[in-house]
Each structure stands twice: as C-alpha cells, then as structure tokens.
C-alpha cells in the first residue's frame, strides 16, 4: 500500500431511490453534498452539521445516517433512500401521510429528516411503542412545532403500518 499517494477521488456505485448510479466522487464529498449538489435531491436538508439535529437524515441500507457528516465514498455498494424516494408515484408513504394529517410541520426544514428517521425506525421496528418512538425521534430537532404533533404523526404511522420487524431490533 505504500508508495503511491492515496487517491482523492473514487468511483462509487450505488442505488439512490431505486436508481442505479455510478459516479466519481471526491473523498471529501459528504453524502449530503452528493445528494444536494450533484444529484439535485435538495429534499435532504443540512443544519447543525454535528449529527445532532437530524435534518440531513437519509436511510442507507436500512440504517438512518447523518448525511452531512457521512462520506459519499462510503456509499459504494449501498442502497440509499431519501425523502424524494418515499412516495410510490402519487401515493405517499404512510409516514408522509401521517405528518400531513397530524399537522406535524411548520417551516418544514426539519421535516424530511424526521420523516426519514421515522421510516428507518418503523422499518427496523414496525410495532414501535411510545418509548421506542421517543427514543429514536429524540435524536432530531424541530424549532417550530414543540414536537407534540410530530410524536402524534409517528405514532399514527406506527399504528397504521402494523406490527412486524426487519428482525434485528427489539
């Protein structure tokens, strides 16, 4: 491995919202920069850049990830889901529907991140109870709503999506 300097760009092959995609990316490029600046998927928002606020949450191979501090070079071989990939045509994902119904948004800047976090949670743990919902969603910040409607929305989505689990959670 010694001798030649480490490359500063690498080719990644991934699936983004169901579409295969191959790109040469700088190692310094974050997942959020890849999505927003190179793929035009601006639904993913960046705010705290410290993995605290969750606005930039996307789902990579089923796991919630802070796209602002994850490197695009790590996406090689993965499947990435962003807020733009949730709806099936005109049909919204149950989590999106629940956020609309529960009036769980105001300015909307945190909304994609909350929705992706809830999608990851309910994918990992369909029958998530109140404690589980609070534990997961506590990792996202909202400055507008005071959270109560967001908790209601995720609870509503959880009840609609029913029990069942990806199997590696509890």
């Amino acid at each position: 491995m010694t001798g030649s300097p480490a490359p500063t760009s690498i080719v990644v092959r991934m699936r983004v919202n169901g579409h295969d995609c191959e790109m040469l990316v700088p190692v310094r490029l974050t997942v959020a920069e890849l999505l927003r600046d190179r793929l035009g998927l601006t639904g993913t928002k960046v705010s705290c850049e410290m993995q605290v606020c969750g606005a930039c949450t996307v789902v990579v191979d089923g796991d919630p990830v802070s796209s602002c501090t994850a490197l695009a070079c790590d996406l090689d071989g993965t499947e990435v889901l962003t807020v733009e990939g949730l709806a099936q045509g005109r049909d919204l994902h149950p989590v999106q529907e629940a956020f609309m119904e529960a009036n769980a948004l105001q300015c909307g800047f945190c909304t994609p991140g909350f929705i992706m976090m809830a999608v990851a949670l309910l994918d990992a743990c369909r029958g998530a109870d109140q404690d589980k919902i609070r534990e997961w969603m506590d990792g996202n910040l909202c400055r507008c709503t005071g959270y109560a409607p967001i908790e209601t929305a995720v609870t509503l989505a959880a009840s609609r999506m029913g029990a069942g689990s990806r199997g590696d959670d509890h």
């Binding site: 998927l41 639904g43 993913t44 807020v83 919204l92 956020f99 609309m100 909307g108 909304t111 929705i115």
Partner: peptide, 22 residues
C-alpha cells in the same frame, strides 16, 4: 376551520424550495 396546511404536500415530499436550495 382547521383546514390542512397548503404547503404540507411539498414539505413532506422534500419538494418545498428554500433559499438554500436555489
């Protein structure tokens, strides 16, 4: 009446445009 927000669809689908997206 408590009608739904007119911006809800845009905001839950990530399509709402903010200055930072422009």
């Amino acid at each position: 009446t408590a009608v739904p927000r007119s911006d809800a669809w845009e905001k839950v689908t990530g399509r709402a445009r903010y200055a930072v997206d422009m």
